[in-house]
Design a protein around this nucleic acid. Sequence first.
DNA 1: CGCGGCTTTGATGTTCATCAAGTAAAGTGG
DNA 2: CCACTTTACTTGATGAACATCAAAGCCGCG
Lengths: 222, 222
Amino acid sequence: MSDCFYKAVFFNKLSFDEINCLDHIREEKLFKKGEIISNEGDEIKQFIYMKKGLVKIHKHGLDGRERIISIAKPIDFFGLLTIFSDTQYKYSITAIEESRFCMFDVKAFKETILLNANFAMMLIGRMSQVADGIIKTRFDIGGKNLRGRIAYILMYFANDVYMNNSFELPLSRKEIAELIDMTTENVIRILSEFNKDNIIRLDGKSIEITNVELLRKINLAG
Amino acid sequence: MSDCFYKAVFFNKLSFDEINCLDHIREEKLFKKGEIISNEGDEIKQFIYMKKGLVKIHKHGLDGRERIISIAKPIDFFGLLTIFSDTQYKYSITAIEESRFCMFDVKAFKETILLNANFAMMLIGRMSQVADGIIKTRFDIGGKNLRGRIAYILMYFANDVYMNNSFELPLSRKEIAELIDMTTENVIRILSEFNKDNIIRLDGKSIEITNVELLRKINLAG
DNA sequence: CGCGGCTTTGATGTTCATCAAGTAAAGTGG
DNA sequence: CCACTTTACTTGATGAACATCAAAGCCGCG
């Protein structure tokens, strides 16, 4: 296994950008919007590294209804290190934008760690960050009323995903509901309400946040 | 060699030199019920290993109200590996039963990891498990109505903490409310209701689950 | 072209938080 | 050790927030 891989990881710490150097073990795959990367219950055979894109991590609730645990972009994707504690995926992963991945054989990946404690250390740090991020998000959402949750999720897409106050929603209304624990009808109602109050400009999936300050207040108040 | 954690948990993964090294820098502490182990915002100076007891991991919500993220017993406590991604505690930790800890200097602990990839691997696995556990719990609770949440938390204490259908609640009604996102009044109301319906026998903080099957149904139905 | 899933709006009812008010228990200081 | 203060617990009444149900238009896709 090429040492280029470790170099990339180790020196860049947060980025696997030079991962292309790894040829024999790695396999690159492209998933279109809506395509499933893995299914809850599937056996884990590969370590997956996301190079580009956006996915949803989701799972069936006890009542059968689908629910979304988290949205992940490349840098957030370390969290799925279930590979170290389980042999099956606990969650399903589905692309919500075109996404590119590198897949590595799990065994080889684990061996890599055993040969390089610095690399392991970096992994531990990233995992810890990602897990804390998810826990904090669920914590925050749990404490909000519905208007606050919608405000939160709009700000999340604007600030953390697209770095822009105008963006195309990558989720359907139904999926937003699954993500922030509410009903589709209320997602629609509150988005319309925000639109009417000129907090956002809404056109199908196109959203522009026009009153950032007010949205922030609603987020904090809820 | 001390009876502290590595014997039980890490024995195979550490060399004698490393163990002795850690042993010299370890400090053992006892906390009584209600005593604070660490405060949100404090600088992290030590890696903490819980030998015995029960703690709550908690944090102030945006609205100022206190909320409990998780209850942890010794084996669950690895999750607090914020030490690898941050220099300050993100959460407060308070003993809810008398608890005993070993504290290690963080730097020495990290150096140990760098010298021992097996140890690192074990840590990664444990972290991943613990984080997944917390995420799953929040996920489950989020999908339940109030009766379902109370059922869930009663079953949690009976099955995962005390391994017995009779136990003393380690939390006040208010703290239960903080843990499962509801109001103190409703915690009381639903506990009383379960008592009247002979699902539990309630006397202050003493609880006995008398109708396990029905409680399970309420948990799943919610 | 028609079916199924997504979106939207309105009407209705349930669940739950809030408010109020009182009792019990547990600290606290003289 | 007792008076005092605070905190925990409890019950009922009220209203707000939210889910559910129903119906209809829309769009994409086979």
